[in-house]
Design a protein around this nucleic acid. Structure first.
Length: 403
DNA sequence: TCTGGGGTCCTTAGGCTG
DNA sequence: TCTGCAGCCTAAGGACCC
């Protein structure tokens, strides 16, 4: 039985930039870059900026070099998130089966919407008109049978277009493309395949799947095989969490925060202050989400961009700032960079703190104290800080050591 | 005075245990 | 007591996504 071409991938065009300049007609025809401040990367660039070669993901430094006259602005999430939520409601007025990927894109299964709204192409055009009329933002839509092909189609429909890749035309339309165009094949995998002489999607399709598995690993090899034949996932997971946690799902995996320092740092005390700030932020987010985690991990990026991570499992899961911070300090010191016999510690560019192995917190009432559980004063202090920051904002309370 | 921050998933290696 | 093995867990790192 052949499955219908019923998946839509809707992707806003330069979403961050489109929203940020929507109410600024004076900026519509000048290059605008969102993000890309000091040591940052470009989150989005409008089409006038792209004409200069500015791309999202590029360093702000490089973007400003390519287009010195561009207007650079930081992203305003208080503006972006409500627009994103409103657009999701527009999607849901067409179908209840919506899988949110991120702030600016979603998959829609329109199988049940044909009687009301017509074929997928007609639905795509209606969605585009409504989003433009209601939110003033252009978007592109890809239509296909599977998730990866719909995503590929929307990418190729940009800007402001619609593209359908039906199964019977998949080979003709997709096999000539570079294998790096596939959703899930990044720079690293693309390079490995190219070195093997596998340049196009069709090249990989002709390659024996068991050899792919041997070379790329069982999982990636099998997955790549499904991608090059367009036979990956066809069912959506409605209410998907979204990569940035703005979705409605309840991600169980991990929560973390990392920060690139304004300047590289060698001093242990400076790093401890940053670890404390990050630990406070992560623990507060855990408490707000009613989660506790079993493992604390730190990430260190040195000035040469070498990045390492170290992690440690805790005896008891926690959402307490002090627990997260203490473990982070243990992990940092275990690197040995600040031992007494080390004359010049390495320069650190970025530090991160992450709590993994998340689960729902057991309510306090009826919870048994673990043997040897320490002073409950820190959780009380955390709750007091949460209450104060909830009322007066994040600058209201700050630990003495952060001042 | 180049290269963010938030995640997920997979692979690999080594230790432990039965 | 030693060895080999399978299975599980932990830790580290890499790749990928937006």
């Amino acid at each position: 039985m052949t499955q219908p071409t019923n998946l839509l991938h809707v992707d806003m065009d330069a979403f961050y930039a489109s929203v940020m300049i929507r109410d600024r007609p004076d900026l519509h025809h000048v290059p605008v870059i969102v993000g890309g401040g000091h040591r940052g990367v470009v989150l989005a660039a409008n089409y006038p900026a792209r004409a200069y070669g500015v791309r999202s993901g590029m360093s702000g430094y490089e973007a400003r070099r390519l287009c010195p006259k561009a207007v650079v602005m930081p992203p305003d999430f208080e503006l972006l998130v409500p627009v994103s939520k409103a657009i999701r409601e527009t999607f849901r007025s067409f179908t209840p089966v919506v899988e949110v990927v991120s702030l600016d894109e979603a998959f829609l299964d329109v199988r049940g919407a044909a009687r009301l709204f017509g074929p997928p192409e007609a639905i795509a055009q209606r969605i585009r008109s409504r989003i433009r009329a209601e939110h003033g933002i252009p978007c592109s839509v890809g239509i296909a049978r599977s998730v990866s092909v719909a995503k590929l189609a929307s990418r190729r429909a940009k800007p402001d277009g619609v593209l359908t890749i039906p199964p019977e035309r998949f080979v003709e339309m997709v096999h000539p493309l570079d294998v790096g165009e596939l959703y899930g094949v990044g720079e690293s995998t693309r390079e490995r395949l190219h070195k093997l002489g596998l340049i196009t999607v069709g090249d990989v399709a002709k390659f024996p799947v068991d050899q792919l598995r041997r070379m790329l690993g069982r999982h990636l090899g099998g997955h790549l095989h499904s991608l090059v034949w367009g036979t990956d996932r066809t069912e959506l997971h409605p209410g998907g969490a979204g990569t940035w946690g703005f979705g409605e799902g309840t991600p169980e995996g991990s929560m973390g925060s990392q920060h690139t320092l304004a300047a590289d740092v060698r001093d242990r005390d400076d790093l401890l202050r940053e670890l404390l700030r990050l630990s406070s932020r992560v623990a507060a987010r855990l408490r707000a989400a009613d989660k506790i985690g079993t493992t604390v991990a730190i990430t260190i990026r040195y000035s040469d961009f070498r990045t390492i991570s170290r992690s440690r499992k805790l005896p008891e899961p926690t959402d307490v700032t002090q627990d997260v911070y203490d473990t982070a300090v243990l992990l940092l010191d275990a690197l040995g960079h600040w031992a007494p016999d080390v004359s010049r510690p390495p320069a650190v560019r970025l530090v991160g703190v992450r709590v993994e192995g998340l689960r729902r917190r057991v309510p306090e009432a009826g919870r048994q104290l673990a043997l040897g559980e320490r002073d409950p004063g820190w959780p009380d202090a955390d709750r007091a800080i949460d209450r104060a920051t909830g009322r007066f904002g994040h600058t209201a309370v700050r630990r003495g050591s952060l001042l």
